[in-house]
Simulated scan of single mutants.
Amino acid sequence: MTNHITTKWLGNMAFESNNPSGNTLIIDIAPEDGGEGQGYRPKALMLSSLAGCSGLDVASLIKKMKLEVEEFTIETIADLTEEHPKSYNKVTIEYHFKGANLAEKKLQRAVDLSIDKYCGVMEMFRQFATLEIKTIFKK
Rank of each mutant, 00 (worst) to 15 (best):
Glu132Leu: 13
Arg109Gln: 14
Ser48Asp: 03
Asp112Val: 00
Gln127Ser: 15
Ala44Tyr: 06
Ala44Pro: 00
Gln127Trp: 02
Leu67Tyr: 04
Leu107Ile: 02
Gly35Trp: 02
Met46Thr: 13
Ser114Asn: 14
Leu56Ala: 14
Leu107His: 08
Cys53Thr: 02
Gly99Met: 08
Val121Ala: 15
Leu102Ala: 07
Lys66Tyr: 06
Phe72Ser: 03
Val121Gly: 11
Ile26Phe: 08
Met13Tyr: 09
Ile74Tyr: 09
Ala110Cys: 12
Ser60His: 12
Glu83Lys: 09
Phe125Tyr: 10
Gly99Asn: 07
Asp79Asn: 15
Leu61Lys: 08
Lys134Cys: 05
Ile77Trp: 04
Ala14Asp: 04
Asp116His: 14
Cys53Arg: 04
Leu25Ser: 13
Ala44Ser: 14
Ile74His: 09
Gly120Val: 10
Tyr95Lys: 05
Val69Asn: 00
Glu75Trp: 09
Gln38Leu: 15
Lys134Met: 04
Asn101Pro: 12
Leu67Cys: 07
Gly11Asp: 11
Leu45Tyr: 09
Leu80Asn: 08
Glu94Trp: 01
Thr130Trp: 01
Pro85Glu: 00
Ser54Cys: 07
Tyr118Ser: 11
Lys64Tyr: 04
Thr73Asn: 12
Val111Cys: 05
Asn12Ala: 13
Gly52Ser: 03
Lys106Ser: 14
Tyr88Thr: 01
Leu102Trp: 06
Gly99Thr: 11
Ile26Glu: 03
Ala100Gln: 12
Ile27Ala: 12
Pro31His: 01
Gly35Ile: 08
Ile27Gln: 07
Ser60Gly: 15
Ile133Trp: 05
Leu102Thr: 01
Ala100Tyr: 00
Ile74Pro: 02
Glu75Asp: 15
Tyr40Ile: 05
Leu45Trp: 09
Met122Leu: 11
Lys90Ile: 12
Thr24Asp: 09
Met124Arg: 00
Arg109Lys: 15
Phe72His: 13
Val91Asp: 06
Cys119Tyr: 06
Thr24Val: 13
Ser48Ile: 15
Phe15Asp: 00
Arg109Gly: 06
Cys53Leu: 03
Gln108Leu: 09
Ala30Gly: 00
Glu36Val: 07
Thr76Leu: 12
Glu71Gly: 05
Asp33Gln: 11
Met46Ile: 05
Ala78Asp: 01
Gly22Leu: 02
Ala44Gln: 11
Glu94Tyr: 03
Ala110Phe: 09
Gly11Met: 05
Glu82Phe: 08
Glu82Gln: 14
Asn19Ser: 15
Pro85Gly: 03
Leu50Thr: 10
Ser48Arg: 04
Leu50Ala: 10
Thr24Lys: 13
His96Gly: 03
Met65His: 11
Asn101Phe: 14
Leu102Arg: 08
Gln108Ser: 15
Gln127Tyr: 11
Phe72Ile: 04
Leu25Gly: 10
Thr130His: 10
Ser54Leu: 13
Glu16Ser: 13
His84Ser: 02
Gly52Pro: 00
Ser17Leu: 03
Met13Pro: 03
Arg109Val: 02
Ile115Ser: 10
Leu102Ser: 06
Ile93Pro: 01
Ser21Ala: 12
Asp112Ala: 08
His96Val: 14
Leu80Gly: 04
Val111Tyr: 06
Arg126Ser: 13
Asp116Leu: 14
Glu104Met: 11
Met122Ala: 10
Lys90Cys: 03
Ile74Cys: 07
